[in-house]
């Protein structure tokens, strides 16, 4: 009797302290999102209108899809930004893919061929990134270089003018709907399911996290880190390409320079995802929530008539809040 009563106690005492943040923290993340959305809904009657919500989802799709790719890179490369995984070329590759598709369809290629061409170009960029990183270059510098190359190629192909994105297929991408949802949103949800399940519950995902958190240990355990790291850049570039296609379809044109504008938002979305994870790591679900949050915030500010300059400041402060949270993790780990 006494031993049976004592066992659970010793068991509890011996349990290792739970890693990561206190449990309330991840709920605080969701609570903040909910509070902001409710505040926007309360202050602007047009916010919770179905048409506006569809617009928010549409805006979120581009950031979320490219963010998924960046999240995979960060997961596989480790979240230290200078030496770990980072892909600065996502924005430029998205812009390049959109431009390639627009120029190809202008030249009379069928939509399927233009989309395939755009994705092939994106995959080529991802291959360059992956190969250079696997060879031992810092991801930050590699993707900085490919960002410059992709941005320059965009200018060369488009001649630095807006290329209209015409054709029934692209209009369907913009205006069409599947099961009552805009096409971009459906694409986002499908990719969310694929990447999220892949990273969360397949051996590929578990190994990717292992490689990112301790490449040496992963290697000792028989995983080939290079394979996973290379693939992460390929995936990131492909998802960036898809995001670029959707963005161009939404704008009805491939706009040169749009890549640099969305880069910071994609980085913000991917890094913000840590707030929504109990272990404070980058996750796909968190990326989706962060993308929805950023899109809702931007949209809500516009509805309220807040000058667009403040949106940038709000995003900057947001990142800082996120990072302060991450810094708390760093300190509690060090103790």
């Amino acid at each position: 009797m006494s031993t049976a009563a004592a066992t659970p106690q010793t068991g509890a005492a011996q349990r290792a302290p739970r890693r990561g943040a206190p449990a309330w923290l991840s709920w605080a993340g969701y609570a903040t999102v909910l509070a902001v959305v409710l505040a926007l809904a309360a202050s602007s009657p047009n916010f919770l209108v179905p048409a506006n919500l569809a617009a928010v989802l549409n805006q979120a799709a581009v950031y979320a899809i490219a963010g998924f790719g960046l999240a995979v890179v960060i997961v596989t490369g480790g979240d230290d930004v200078v030496d770990g995984g980072i892909d600065l070329s996502v924005g430029a590759v998205a812009g390049l893919a959109g431009t390639v598709a627009a120029v190809a369809s202008q030249a009379g290629l069928p939509p399927v061929a233009s989309i395939a061409g755009a994705l092939a170009v994106a995959a080529a960029a991802g291959t360059v990134n992956g190969a250079a990183v696997v060879l031992g270059l810092r991801p930050l510098l590699t993707t900085l270089a490919t960002m410059g190359i992709a941005g320059s190629l965009t200018l060369v192909i488009s001649n630095n003018v807006k290329v209209p994105f015409t054709g029934a297929a692209f209009e369907w991408l913009r205006d069409g709907s599947l099961a009552g949802l805009p096409v971009a949103v459906v694409v986002m949800l499908v990719l969310f399911a694929v990447v999220g399940l892949g990273l969360g519950s397949t051996s590929w995902g578990v190994r990717s996290y292992a490689v990112g958190q301790n490449p040496t240990a992963a290697k000792v355990a028989g995983i080939n880190p290079r394979k996973y790291i290379f693939n992460s850049y390929l995936i990131s570039a492909l998802l960036a390409g898809i995001a670029g296609l959707l963005l161009s379809a939404r704008l009805s044109a491939a706009v040169p320079g749009v890549g640099n504008q969305i880069l910071l938002d994609i980085i913000l979305v991917a890094f913000m995802s840590v707030v929504f994870s109990r272990r404070l790591v980058v996750t796909i679900t968190g990326t989706l929530v962060a993308a929805l949050f950023i899109a809702a915030l931007t949209n809500g500010f516009t509805l309220l008539g807040v000058a667009s300059q403040w949106v940038g400041a709000a995003k900057g402060v947001l990142i800082l809040v996120v990072l302060a949270v991450v810094a708390i993790r760093g300190r509690s780990d060090a103790k």
């Binding site: 230290d80 930004v81 403040w310 949106v311 940038g312 900057g316 990142i319 990072l323 991450v326 810094a327």
Partner: peptide, 28 residues
């Protein structure tokens, strides 16, 4: 002081600084 990783700290300063410029120049 806050021990925020340099890349992300200076990235957010970039965001905020760009906004500050626009606010100070009446929208850029």
């Amino acid at each position: 002081v806050l021990r925020i990783p340099p890349f992300l700290a200076t990235l957010s300063v970039w965001f905020i600084g760009t906004s500050v410029q626009q606010l100070l120049t009446g929208g850029g």
